[in-house]
């Protein structure tokens, strides 16, 4: 039984395709970095618009958040890669993947920021007002610096989720880790070995990152009255 089980694996032969898998991992990391770099500021912008004074803009932001969170990330990727070309808008797979998941993640991150801003005690805002600060100054000097401390741990968790969610863009033929695994295993039929190695690679990045986020969480909670807001797992994680 055990021998049969172990017979499914051939780690000695893995050397042949390890470079390909590592390139796939590099692509997954590059996707994660690009998408985070776009959706971190974009999410903040959407959150600020949603908390802003213009009613029309507020409605736009809420609609964006609800539509994006209410539809699967895969559908959003399909739209960008398969539907937009019908309107003459074409992207290469990597760009399409980055745009699709940035749109998706910015909606989730906007809610994280919004919760972080809402967690700043009313007394802090009143004190800022009483000192004659304008809305803008209050936001920049008081509210955002406090909110950022609260949202860093959940944002970190979303970063880890995103690293795993980049596997979704395999659907638009980006050669990230999962898609590379499919290509490799469909030629050498070493499914067990290939996907076990891939799992180990994901874990090798995710677990230390999770430890880092936990450490940040402890550091950030020191000396603030504000409790960290819980970071729910994005819907995209369930669509895989």
């Amino acid at each position: 039984m055990l021998t049969t089980f172990l017979g499914l694996f051939d780690f000695q032969g893995a050397g042949d395709y390890m470079p390909a898998l590592l390139r796939g991992a590099a692509t997954s990391l590059a996707l994660t970095a690009c998408i985070m770099l776009i959706s971190l500021p974009l999410g903040l912008l959407i959150a600020l618009v949603k908390l802003g004074r213009s009613r029309i803009l507020r409605t736009c932001a809420s609609t964006y958040i609800e539509v994006i969170r209410g539809t699967p990330a895969l559908l959003q990727l399909f739209y960008i890669y398969f539907v937009l070309p019908s309107f003459g808008i074409r992207f290469d797979p990597f760009t399409a993947g980055v745009i699709g998941l940035s749109i998706n993640y910015s909606a989730y991150l906007a809610e994280v920021y919004r919760a972080g801003i809402a967690a700043v005690p009313q007394g802090q805002i009143e004190a800022a007002k009483a000192l004659g600060m304008s809305r803008r100054k209050m936001l920049r000097l008081i509210v955002l610096p406090q909110a950022i401390r609260v949202v860093i741990p959940p944002l970190g968790n979303y970063g880890i989720s995103l690293f795993k969610d980049t596997s979704l863009v395999s659907i638009v033929t980006v050669k990230e880790l999962i898609f590379t695994g499919q290509i490799v295993s469909s030629t050498n039929f070493q499914y067990a070995t290939v996907f076990t190695i891939i799992g180990a690679i994901y874990l090798a990045f995710s677990y230390p990152s999770a430890l880092l986020v936990r450490w940040l969480e402890r550091r950030m909670s020191v000396g603030t009255k504000v409790k960290p807001v819980g970071g729910a797992t994005p819907v995209t994680a369930a669509t895989q």
């Binding site: 000192l131 304008s134 000396g223």
Partner: peptide, 24 residues
């Protein structure tokens, strides 16, 4: 308007029951 309100608040100092020092 906001600017008039802010100008007045700058002239009027306020101390709160719960201190409200900026925690960061």
């Amino acid at each position: 308007n906001d600017r008039a309100v802010e100008a007045i608040r700058a002239k009027v100092g306020m101390v709160f029951q719960s201190f409200n020092l900026f925690s960061h």
